[in-house]
Simulated scan of single mutants.
Amino acid sequence: MLTLLTFPSAFGLFSASPFCVKTALMLQRAGQQWQRSDMLDPRKMPHQKLPVLRTPERLVPDSDLIREWLEAQGADFDSGLSDLQKAQSRALIRMAEEHLYFHVVQDRWANDDVWPILRDTFFTVIPALIRKPVSNSIRKSVVKGLAFQGVSRFSPAERQDRLERDLEAISAYLWQSPYLMGENPTSADMSVGPMLAAMRATPSDTPLTRRIKQDKLLNSYIDRMEQAIPLS
């Protein structure tokens, strides 16, 4: 049986990581028999990140590489799509994973209201005596990465404007059909849906969580994705 090495459930989601959720959705959609194995420290994993799929032959890291592996086994996540739709799907995936994701990280790790909740959720395995300095060191590293990536260099208003343009693009698709590419979930939905769900689930009242929760179209889409491919 396949085993998905994933960050644990958190904030009412299958995993705190939208990439782990994406991979679980692909496994379900592909009709694979699989089980989850939760972990908090991925440093011994390929790429030192999660998700990782344990197959009979090897460990497959990264949600995109896992998708390729599943497709090599016969999965078709974009069945019926034209070449143009597949290209649009790829662009939506990149927008979600290379831009929206960093707004999620900013909203969680750089927010002083959210940080104590994250610390108590993700770092419980660290002995209490050293938990605070160790977790603070990891937080500093994540925040430094946000500055390197660039999202934290913008003012809150600038970040909101950049985010709004992406959400408007997603909404333009959803006004046309229940899912991004039509009547059924495809690969784009398995990336975008979990990213929006992660935004909504951040355990504090932030401008980002409010933006998603107050949007009927996006909220309905998140709920529809959870019902279409249930993970529990």
Rank of each mutant, 00 (worst) to 15 (best):
R119A: 08
L167G: 04
R119F: 05
M199H: 01
S152Y: 05
V105C: 06
P156Q: 08
S187N: 02
F123P: 00
T124D: 11
I130N: 02
H103A: 08
S152Q: 14
R90C: 08
P127S: 02
L129I: 13
A110Y: 02
A197I: 05
F102D: 06
L100Q: 03
E98S: 11
S89K: 00
E97H: 10
A91V: 12
L100R: 02
L196P: 03
E158T: 14
N184G: 07
R162L: 14
A110K: 02
Q88Y: 12
A198L: 01
Q160Y: 07
L129K: 12
F102R: 02
A201P: 01
Y179G: 07
Y101N: 01
T124C: 07
S137P: 04
V104R: 02
A110I: 03
S141M: 12
I93E: 06
F123A: 00
Q176K: 15
G193N: 06
E168A: 12
P133A: 10
E183I: 04
L167K: 05
N111K: 00
S171W: 10
K144P: 06
M199W: 04
S79Y: 10
S177W: 11
L167P: 01
E164C: 06
L180F: 10
E183H: 12
V104W: 11
L146W: 11
S152F: 06
L196C: 09
K140A: 15
Q88V: 12
T202C: 02
H99M: 10
A87K: 09
A197V: 04
V192T: 05
M181G: 10
R200H: 07
I126W: 03
D161R: 15
Q149I: 12
V104F: 13
V114A: 03
R153T: 14
L81I: 10
K140S: 12
R108K: 14
T202M: 02
Y101G: 01
R200M: 11
V192P: 02
I138L: 10
W175V: 11
A198R: 01
A147W: 10
V105N: 06
S89V: 05
A91Y: 03
V105T: 09
R162D: 07
M199I: 06
R159W: 01
L146N: 08
L146I: 07
R94H: 14
V105H: 02
V105W: 04
I117F: 00
S79Q: 15
R131V: 03
P133C: 08
L118I: 15
G182R: 00
S79A: 15
A87L: 15
M195W: 07
T124L: 10
R162I: 09
M95T: 09
S82F: 09
A91S: 13
L92T: 01
A157E: 13
L118H: 02
H99Q: 13
S171D: 08
A188M: 09
Q176I: 09
H103K: 06
L92P: 01
R165I: 09
S89Q: 10
